[in-house]
Nucleic acid binder design. Structure first.
Lengths: 220, 220
DNA sequence: TATTTATTCAATAAGTTTATTGATTAATTG
DNA sequence: CAATTAATCAATAAACTTATTGAATAAATA
């Protein structure tokens, strides 16, 4: 093979792979699939896309083997094809937050508006886990909690939080977490909790970051 | 800001960043800029693009701050904006080689055709560096050698190799390296050397990978 | 200050990507 | 085996991306 044809093939194939990720909806799908397995209609509901459009995006991701699917009754359950896909998304996300001022600002403004002023990183959390009165609150939908959650975390999906407030201690610190830095459930939880006088903070990262660091986690 | 508008902004900005990389020519440019600084016309020559087209691609990369430029006389010298850009390219490249069978096959076939049957990784090279008779041969253009090279490496740009053969020892092993796994200079060097009876192998990775691992390197 | 030179800009046509719509498929389950 | 259901396909229009061309710009040197 000629030198030029060779380079065209290699860089072309890598560009095809990159193109599969180079779309806001598909990045959102990858970020969602980091939580576990989802059927097409679940992904459509979570992202606000139509079923057909969701399917189309999933075909693109499947075409370069970034996701895979297996049938489960009437449903096709999609998932990330391997842990490196998550590592790539995490690198992209971190690069954006650290190096692109506009992204960091959008996130900061959104949280300020909800009076989410402080966040806790996984590193900081590890130092606090054995402290008295630290409560871990998982505010994701309950099936995502079922597919893996932080050790000892209480499941309280954001929609149930208001009516279940009395289950939470009035002293100590509540640390709410959800899917990742761009997930808003934890921000909403912190806003609700602090406005009622519960001391609360959000975890900067999400459950997939905990899992990816090989920290122990609980199932079901 | 509304939840949906927020997600559109965040994932949109990250998709814009990814889109800047999602093109074969721009990936090739990033791979080249990993060697050091280049003027627009150098990049155009190396990639075979027109000057205007090269400039256009560089504007796209500059627009998301993946590259930066400074003036030097009549020339504008472009470079990668920061080491994380190289880390991202390296991750993409490694993912492609490890997970996309088609990419690995194209590289393998190209090398087989040139009878480049064995390669040495940086890890393997580190164990051999103190052995008798190991010669490191840098077959990149001499200005790239000048911008950084492996300790003790001899500079012999691929075009000069044939006429300078007698400078090389007939015994021991010659390890040729260049820009990275997709750079063909080292493959061509190994083909030429082995066909003349010099025992030669190529380094799988390139100089930027050595540098990125914080291993010591020489300048000028 | 005029000339040279490297780079960018602007306009364009061809090709690609996207969301939408409605029809179709494939598999499960009653 | 018929009905149901989840997911995909196919066609389309609108919006983007790309390489090409030739003109314009901005900075450096004579």
């Amino acid at each position: 093979m000629e030198k030029r044809a060779y380079k065209d093939q290699v860089y072309g194939a890598l560009a095809d792979l990159t193109k599969a990720l180079a779309n806001p909806r598909r990045l959102e799908i990858v970020d969602l699939l980091a939580q576990g397995e989802f059927a097409v209609e679940d992904i459509a509901r979570e992202t606000g896309l139509s079923i057909a459009n969701t399917s189309q995006h999933l075909q693109v991701l499947k075409g370069v083997q970034l996701v895979s699917a297996t049938r489960d009754g009437h449903y096709l359950r999609y998932r990330l094809a391997n842990p490196d896909v998550y590592a790539a998304w995490q690198l992209l996300r971190t690069y954006g937050l650290n190096r692109q001022a506009n992204i960091a600002r959008v996130v900061h403004d959104f949280r300020s508006q909800r009076e989410v002023l402080q966040t806790v990183s996984i590193d900081e959390l590890l130092g606090k886990l054995n402290d008295e009165g630290v409560v871990l609150l998982d505010v994701r939908p309950s099936d995502e909690y079922g597919q893996g959650h932080l050790p000892g975390a209480v499941s309280m999906p954001i929609g149930e939080l208001l009516e279940r407030l009395e289950e939470l201690p009035r002293t100590g610190t509540i640390i709410a977490y959800c899917r990742g830095p761009f997930c808003v459930f934890a921000d909403e939880a912190v806003q609700l909790l602090t406005s009622r006088g519960y001391p609360a903070q959000r975890l900067e990262e999400g459950f997939p970051d905990w899992k990816h660091r090989q920290l122990p986690y609980e199932l079901a």
